[in-house]
Every structure is written in C-alpha cells, then in structure tokens.
C-alpha cells in the first residue's frame, strides 16, 4: 500500500509512525511492572531485599547496553550512506552488546537465586524478576531482529536504499535502552540509596 512517505497524509512513513505509536503504549506496560516493584520494595517476606544488588556489576552491564545504542545509531547512519559493509558491522556489534547485557542478566539472576531471592518467595522477588525479565525478553527480541536484519542485508532482501528498516529496529532498540535507563535508576540505584541509608 505504501509507496513513499511523500504520498501519505502527514508525509510520514506508515511503518515509522506505527513504531512510534506502539512505543508510546509500551510505557504503560513497563510502568505497571515498575509500579508493582516500587509498591513491594520492602515486602520481602523475610527474604533478601534491595541490598542484594551488585551495583558495580549492573553499572557495567547498563553501560554496555547504553553503548549498544551508539553502535545502533551508527549502523543506521551507515545504512543511510549506503555503506552496507559498515552497517552490518555495527549491527553485529549492537547485537553482540545486547547479548553481553543478556548474559549479565542471566548471571545476575543466578547469583541472586543462589543468595536466596527465589521467584515465588516474596512479592519483591516476583516483581523484580518479572520486571527485569520482561525487559530481558525485549532485549532478546531486539537481538533476533538485529540478526534478521543482518542476514536479510546479505541476501539482498533489505537493500541499501531502505535505511527505514534499520531505523525501525533502531527505534525499538533505543526504546529498550531507554527503559533500562529508567530501570537502572528507579529499580536499582534509588532504592539502594533510599532503603540502605
């Protein structure tokens, strides 16, 4: 249906507009879990609470995810210049950093679990694992999309003249990153300060 953005009423590409419409609604999704988490901050049922967090570790994994946004935007930039070789490189780098972040999360979950933060033991544990787990699933989907993007540029299905496709995946990726900016602050740092004075 859509030929070019110039033929639409608002002069915007359908797909990009749709992505933004969808991202706007995602705030309501993550917001709900963040609210539940904040409500249950000290509802630990005798189990471990926010003191369990390893802030230096999470700072590093947050930093990796933040930098993946840089490589993502560079991938898009390369695509707009038609430089597919560099674009693929940056896409892989982004997916790789996403994988490092996910690996860190799996590691973190394992450590917490061993230290006694069991999913079904307290509302705090449920809320923490569910919120960060859903974020992890978003990252995972993002990695799948990036790998798909990578392979489809190889087969020629995605062409140098279609930077919009990289841009769409990029928007999703940056959004997931932005949600982590919120989570890192609101879920890890602020409670750590507020409760452990």
């Amino acid at each position: 249906m859509t030929a070019g953005a110039h033929e639409t009423t608002l002069g915007l590409d359908h797909r990009k507009l749709a992505m933004w419409v969808f991202l706007g609604s995602e705030f309501l999704f993550f917001g709900g879990f963040i609210a539940a988490y904040l409500l249950y901050l000290d509802t630990t049922a005798g189990g471990p609470g926010v003191e369990i967090f390893d802030i230096p570790f999470t700072t590093i994994s947050s930093f990796v995810l933040l930098m993946s946004s840089l490589t993502m935007v560079l991938a898009h930039h390369a695509h707009t210049k038609g430089d597919m070789r560099r674009m693929r490189l940056w896409v892989l780098a982004t997916a790789g950093q996403g994988a490092v972040f996910l690996g860190g999360q799996v590691f973190e979950f394992n450590v917490f679990w061993r230290e006694g933060l069991i999913y079904g033991d307290s509302p705090f544990a449920s809320a923490f694992y569910t919120l960060t787990g859903f974020h992890g699933i978003h990252v995972f989907i993002g990695i799948l999309m990036l790998l798909g993007l990578y392979s489809l540029t190889l087969t020629g299905k995605i062409k140098p003249g279609q930077p919009i496709k990289t841009e769409m995946i990029g928007l999703y990726w940056h959004f997931v990153d932005i949600i982590w900016v919120l989570i890192f602050g609101v879920v890890y740092l602020i409670p750590e300060l507020a409760l452990l004075e």
Binding site: A36, L39, Y40, T43, T44, A45, Y119, G120, D121, S122, P123, A125, S126, A127, T130
Partner: peptide, 16 residues
C-alpha cells in the same frame, strides 16, 4: 508459576 503479586500471605496486595 507461584508468583506473589497479589498474595496477602507474603505481603502482596489484592487491591493492586
């Protein structure tokens, strides 16, 4: 899966 979001026994809030 045994989560505790709404379970008063562990301090969860059904009103949520």
């Amino acid at each position: 899966y045994g989560a505790q979001f709404f379970q008063p026994a562990t301090g969860g809030d059904p009103v949520l």
